[in-house]
């Protein structure tokens, strides 16, 4: 049996609509018009213990609605949802006892308390036995390098320091499942790497099942063996990053650094997507023309300093996927 089972989950919101202007405001007092928004339109997936799943989608796609239902904050209209055999909103306390959540946009720590006191308090709230607490805390302090921060009040921490402390705080009770909602948002490069390294290590060492929502595709590439894409309340794609890439496009890119200024590259079977200074980026379809042939043609015609072939960046792929979603919606 899977650890997390979601079947046909539907969640709609009623949004009060107001006509513009003063007349609209007055009318709204007497008669409100409601619009129904389908935040989740029958989504299904299953997650096995120990998986590290990326959950991505454009803003407003239903990501956080899903995470909120899974954390017991929201009740869906219909559908099945169990975590560890428990229904989050029905067995809330038993469920959250085994759950860790980190919301990048807000801290769970007590603003005015030193970090260590927030930890103590969380241990008491989650009823972690003292010996376990001391061991878990020591491990987190070690993994996240928190020792110098423990006596600092949370409000004095930098964002990166705070996120490290928040991660530790969510894990003191050794949850089976961890929800990370944009854990790297606003972090500098060093902190991002530290957070990623930690998540990976945690997943490997403790077998914690992680669901990660993010807009940072580097997070996904660095961490997730599996990516679910949600758009307009539906799961659009679910599988490895490679499979996602292949499903969207087979194109590859050839990056050429020319030896001379003022030179340009053109080829009937490739498309110039960018030309800045001496660097030209071409996209081509490997089923149409093999990379070797294209390279041979280009090197025959131009003086080349360097060249390499790569996949289009994942951002471009995701943007294309979201773009398709928009246009299919309009048609």
């Amino acid at each position: 049996m899977s650890l997390i089972v979601v079947e046909n989950l539907v969640k709609t919101f009623k949004v009060a609509q107001r006509q513009p202007g003063l007349w609209g405001a007055v009318r709204g007092l007497i008669h409100r018009q409601h619009r129904t928004v389908h935040a989740l339109d029958g989504i299904s997936f299953a997650i096995e213990p120990g998986e590290l799943v990326g959950y991505i989608g454009p803003n407003g796609a239903g990501k956080s609605t899903t995470v909120k239902i899974l954390s017991g904050i929201l009740v869906p209209n219909s559908g099945v949802c169990t975590v560890n055999g428990r229904v989050p909103w029905k067995h809330r306390i038993a469920h959250v006892q085994r759950l860790g959540v980190v919301f990048g946009q807000r801290t769970q720590l007590w603003w005015d308390l030193p970090v260590i006191e927030s930890f103590d308090l969380l241990a008491a709230i989650y009823r972690v036995p003292p010996a376990d607490y001391r061991r878990n805390r020591a491990e987190m302090v070690d993994l996240l390098d928190l020792a110098p921060l423990l006596d600092t009040p949370v409000r004095q921490l930098s964002l990166g320091q705070r996120m490290r402390c928040d991660l530790a705080a969510a894990l003191l009770h050794r949850p089976d499942v961890l929800f990370l909602d944009e854990p790297t948002i606003g972090l500098d490069a060093v902190s991002k790497l530290a957070v990623r390294r930690f998540i990976k290590e945690l997943n490997r060492r403790q077998g914690v099942t992680v669901i990660l929502t993010t807009h940072d595709m580097d997070d996904i590439e660095a961490l997730c063996s599996r990516v679910m894409v949600i758009g307009q309340g539906k799961i659009l794609s679910d599988g490895s990053l490679e499979a996602l890439r292949r499903s969207v496009t087979s194109e590859r890119w050839l990056i050429v650094d020319l030896a001379n200024d003022g030179d340009g590259v053109s080829d009937p079977d490739a498309l110039v997507i960018e030309h800045t200074g001496r660097r030209v980026e071409l996209s081509f379809d490997p089923q149409h023309i093999s990379p070797a042939e294209l390279i041979a043609r280009v090197t025959a015609k131009h003086a080349i300093r360097d060249l390499f072939v790569q996949n289009p960046p994942i951002e471009k792929i995701i943007a294309r996927l979201y773009g398709r979603l928009e246009s299919s919606n309009q048609s």
């Binding site: 954390s71 017991g72 904050i73 929201l74 306390i93 769970q108 709230i125 989650y126 009823r127």
Partner: peptide, 12 residues
């Protein structure tokens, strides 16, 4: 609106 997150803790 963050009051909902109070529900993610195992308390009454």
């Amino acid at each position: 609106g963050t009051v909902a997150y109070e529900l993610t803790r195992p308390w009454d």
